[in-house]
Write a protein that binds this DNA or RNA. Structure first.
Length: 350
DNA sequence: CGTGTTTGACCCGCGC
DNA sequence: GCGCGGGTCAAACACG
């Protein structure tokens, strides 16, 4: 901070932003408070101008405070809304589970039938016969799932292929530097993943691991992790879809340790039932190459999907604002900026 | 015993 | 139609 600032009498007008003076008490000069009688005694034009400026800044300060309060309130409101949405989504999925248990674990993300594996042709036929009357809408409350749409469209005779292309989930890639000695395919991104498969692909000798988000039961997000064919120290994580929940709170280090000890490809287990609201900023991907494809997210409810996306963005922004307002150093910086602005605009500056 | 990982088998889309 | 290859399933297994 500019030492000159602290020595300026004009700055003695406390802005009352809730921060102790930053080392101003060390100043040898005594504080000169601007008082009413002082202003009355020296009603010079510059004093008047200063007074006006002070009032303006005070007003601005008040507005900023109000804005911050509004942001905080909005954040809380959205947080509760988000919690409700998560609960509703979980409830919707649970009701599905009662009618079609095996599809619950799928999260609606994949299958045409509850049990794809070892499905006989008879089962296929019966499944098709049963499909319409039994589960006309596998996920009534949830954002429409691509697979559900596929199924619906396929049974109605539409070309599944095109729909599937249109309903492709958002895909993004994350490159993470990893220890080559560490054979695990763990990418710590703040979410909890459950590995459901591993495969050696043709173009890469390193196996590819398949993960599903295990934080929320109905979360459609999938992740593929594979070492780069060129550089084995680089882990390439490919994310498909969008989380329908907030980021889980960062797990305690002991948990992380246990999990990684438990399995080389395991993500941390949730210490408690999942909370839908992010309690703290989660780790942010290092290199995130978003290749979001221009696709209507879910054709059933495009508006709702867009709104959800917008909600996520707003939530993020407000979370940032909240974090900033809670940060004393940010307040200090704000005070500094405001003070500097006052002095800049002050005509008495000499 | 519950939960998560491993891994071989299966499904299915795509190119020929 | 056939084969290939990526993606997924689910039984077996491991671990706390």
């Amino acid at each position: 901070m500019d030492p000159w600032i602290g020595s300026q009498p004009s700055l003695s007008l406390d802005l009352h932003v809730g921060l102790p003076p930053l080392g101003r008490h060390h100043q040898p000069k005594p504080k000169v408070l601007v008082e009413e009688n002082f202003l009355q005694l020296k009603k010079e034009p510059e004093v008047t101008a200063l007074e006006t400026e002070l009032q303006r800044m005070s007003e601005e300060n008040r507005r900023l405070s109000e804005a911050l309060a509004a942001v905080a309130a909005k954040y809380e409101e959205l947080r509760s809304q988000y919690a409700e949405m998560a609960v509703a989504a979980a409830a919707g999925n649970n009701t599905t589970a009662t009618t079609n248990p095996s599809s619950a674990s799928e999260g609606g993300s994949a299958s045409v039938s509850p049990s794809r594996k070892r499905k006989t042709s008879e089962e296929i036929i019966s499944a098709h016969d049963d499909a319409a009357p039994h589960h006309p809408h596998p996920h009534p409350h949830h954002h429409a799932q691509p697979a559900a749409l596929d199924q619906a469209e396929c049974t109605s005779g539409e070309p599944c292929k095109r729909i599937r292309e249109e309903c492709k989930p958002k895909v993004s890639k994350l490159y993470v530097h990893a220890d080559p000695a560490d054979l695990s395919l763990v990418v710590k991104d703040g979410y909890q993943w459950r590995k459901y498969g591993q495969k050696v692909t043709k173009d890469n000798p390193c196996p590819r691991a398949y993960f599903r988000c295990s934080f929320a039961p109905a979360c459609p997000v999938k992740k593929k992790v594979q070492r780069s064919a060129d550089d084995c120290t680089i882990l390439v994580a490919t994310y498909e879809g969008e989380h329908n929940h907030g980021q889980p709170p960062p797990a305690p280090s002991s948990q992380q340790h246990d999990a990684s000890k438990n399995s080389n490809a395991a993500a941390a287990k949730p210490p408690s039932p999942p909370r839908p609201v992010p309690a703290a900023p989660a780790p942010v991907p290092l290199l995130h190459h978003n290749q979001q494809q221009p696709q209507p997210q879910q054709q059933g409810e495009p508006v709702a999907a867009a709104a959800a996306s917008e909600l996520i963005r707003r939530n993020l922004a407000e979370q940032m604002a909240m974090t900033l307002t809670r940060d004393p150093s940010f307040k200090a910086a704000l005070v500094t900026a405001l003070s500097g602005r006052i002095l800049e605009l002050s005509p008495t500056k000499d």
